[in-house]
Design a protein around this nucleic acid. Structure first.
Lengths: 230, 230
DNA sequence: TCGCCGCGGATGGTATACCATTTTGCACCG
DNA sequence: CGGTGCAAAATGGTATACCATCCGCGGCGA
């Protein structure tokens, strides 16, 4: 998985480590240590950290070690609301502008996810799920929208990952994917908006459940994603 | 205007140079030259360029000089569509969550704009207009939304600036501001959405006019914001 | 004369060294 | 025994040196 530039490759690896939980929320990311650990110099590591910061996975603090972001439930829901608005727009535009080929490709992705669901690594399924949504966004033919949507998908990756591991309502997710694809094939704007709304609503419910469950462990989530002992 | 870090300060300066037109769209930003010109080393200059790239003002190309972004009309309209979706959400949330004080402050901003319109520098009016919209977004109490909206406002700064200098439909802008504030005071979601739609629609019309007018000068705008001789 | 090859400069990417600030721990004083 | 202050270590910010790649120009050959 080598990218164009070292920094991007490092960002990719760092991202996976964060999402996997090797670097837990709140953990400091010391430039020197991490750079050495990955066998690169500080310069691209710095840049990688900035990339993740822009994605919202890492929090920069002036003159302090950056830390892995630890968003509260409220913050995550706020982000999902924005994602929701972006996906509504993308659904609307896709119904209007998507080519038949693009719609077919989206259907293929849906089928592929359905096939590997349960047997593949959760992270891999997740990348596919992201591709599914990104394909819809791409079909809306709006570069700015695609870019911003991608940023939010990355930013919410961890929350989605954690919530999806609970295997709740997997069938529902597959059904919703199917419904979204069907609405798109019919170019039915109202229907696709409704389905996207349901999909995102389910996502919020899942994540809320995860947080409620986790709160039993005593890991308090403050409103601002506060500090946490290292 | 010194920021926390050198890179931010440089980014601020670079941004103003770009928006003012000292660095015209399509111009390459050579790390060495610009670093020397501002009297700093390449490291913070690189970071500043990345910041502007993330804001969409600069376009990064692998192994090539970054260039000042030169968005086509189509790209700008795409961006405004996203901004529109974000503002619709912010209007909806603001109606639900804004405090009376916040609404009053928004009204004050509207009045202030009305007062200085025509007599003050376009740039100043512009800052106020941005504050007006940002205040609405802030009143929606959604940090992620505020952040993304701010990014789009910055990204569209130049287009808005260029289009607003044409003094077309200033009365209409003021009327729309008043209508938006009124809808917000009444917490009328449907009304505020309609008004925001009208406001953004007018913005698109203005910018389209500007482009049509400019096209007469022979400065062709390709669909992808292509190269341009240095 | 035209085209291909190669070399040198320009430029972005990476590594490393240095600096400033912050943090931490320990010693000394009260 | 506890608090204060200083010093050393840690750490992010900055500068500089080096490397890899790309582009332009000139010479060589067909």
């Amino acid at each position: 998985m080598t990218e164009d530039t070292l920094a991007e490759a490092i960002a990719y690896e760092l991202r996976r480590e964060i999402l996997r939980g090797n670097l837990p929320p709140g953990a400091p990311i010391k430039e020197r240590d991490n750079a050495e650990r990955q066998g690169v110099s500080r310069t691209p590591m710095r840049e990688a950290i900035r990339i993740l910061a822009k994605e919202g996975l890492v929090q920069l603090r002036p003159l302090r070690s950056p830390v892995v972001a630890n968003p509260s439930l409220a913050e995550i829901i706020d982000q999902i609301r924005v994602l929701h608005a972006l996906e509504l727009l993308s659904g609307e535009l896709a119904c209007e502008k998507a080519s038949d080929d693009e719609i077919a490709a989206i259907g293929a992705l849906k089928d592929r996810i359905e096939t590997i669901y349960g047997e593949a690594d959760t992270l891999d399924v997740f990348e596919l799920d992201m591709q599914f949504h990104s394909a819809i966004v791409a079909a809306s033919h709006n570069a700015a929208l695609a870019e911003t949507h991608g940023a939010y998908m990355a930013r919410l990756w961890r929350a989605r990952y954690l919530s999806a591991r609970r295997k709740l309502s997997r069938e529902r997710v597959l059904r919703q994917h199917k419904a979204i694809h069907a609405a798109l094939a019919l170019r039915d704007v109202a229907a696709i908006k409704a389905e996207i709304g349901a999909h995102l609503g389910a996502m919020i419910a899942n994540i809320r459940d995860h947080f409620l469950e986790q709160d039993g462990d005593g890991a308090a989530q403050t409103a601002t994603g506060e500090d946490r002992p290292e």
